[in-house]
């Protein structure tokens, strides 16, 4: 009975850690605006990883065609007709520890390039999104701000 109690307690401890880490990681979930203000990105969790998709565009239609913008700069011709709204540009992020999510990539629809990416939460409403090539020194950081429903 004593052993059983120990097992139950240690199991609970493990779950508590797991829940805590999960809560920490889930702080990133929400709607965010990149610095250029041209889009809004919803970061969500799918399975154990975090993803971000475009849910709003300041200029939703292509001025040339008048139709909703598509991913026309994608190097894969088959993907050049995929609508940008709903496009998943942040992929495969793992919550590392503290305030960092890593192991993911960010896609820039304006030039069709995908970069390695690490996300750092500076405070609850601010993310540093650093896209880089190979090593972090060769990169650029964009600061994203959290959005919320308008106060009435």
């Amino acid at each position: 009975m004593k052993n059983l109690l120990l097992l139950v307690l240690s199991t609970f401890t493990l779950f508590a850690h797991s829940i805590s880490a999960q809560d920490q990681g889930d702080r990133i979930i929400g709607i965010w605006e990149p610095s250029n203000g041209k889009a809004r990105v919803k970061i969500e969790k799918i399975g154990t990883r975090y993803y971000g998709k475009i849910v709003w565009l300041k200029e939703p239609n292509d001025p040339e065609t008048g139709k909703p913008k598509v991913d026309k700069n994608n190097s894969d011709a088959n993907l050049q007709t995929v609508p940008l709204k709903g496009y998943r540009l942040l992929k495969d992020f793992n919550f590392k520890s503290g305030n960092e999510w890593d192991g993911g990539t960010i896609y820039d629809p304006e030039n069709g390039s995908t970069y390695d990416c690490v996300i750092t939460m500076k405070d609850n409403n601010t993310l540093d999104i650093r896209g880089f090539i190979g090593i972090s020194a060769f990169g650029r950081t964009d600061v994203w701000k959290r959005l919320q429903t308008q106060k009435k």
């Binding site: 779950f15 797991s18 829940i19 999960q22 709607i31 605006e33 809004r40 919803k42 969500e44 969790k45 799918i46 399975g47 998709k53 849910v55 709003w56 709204k85 709903g86 405070d123 609850n124 409403n125 601010t126 701000k145 959290r146 959005l147 919320q148 429903t149 308008q150 106060k151």
Partner: peptide, 30 residues
């Protein structure tokens, strides 16, 4: 616990994008 904390795949259902139109910065000083 595994079932309790599993996340639904939000991409499964069609999304109403109009809900993202009227939003403000959460941080008032931003």
């Amino acid at each position: 616990p595994g079932f309790l904390f599993a996340q639904p795949d939000s991409t499964a259902a069609a999304e109403d994008y109009s809900q993202y139109e009227n939003l403000d910065f959460a941080d008032e000083g931003a």
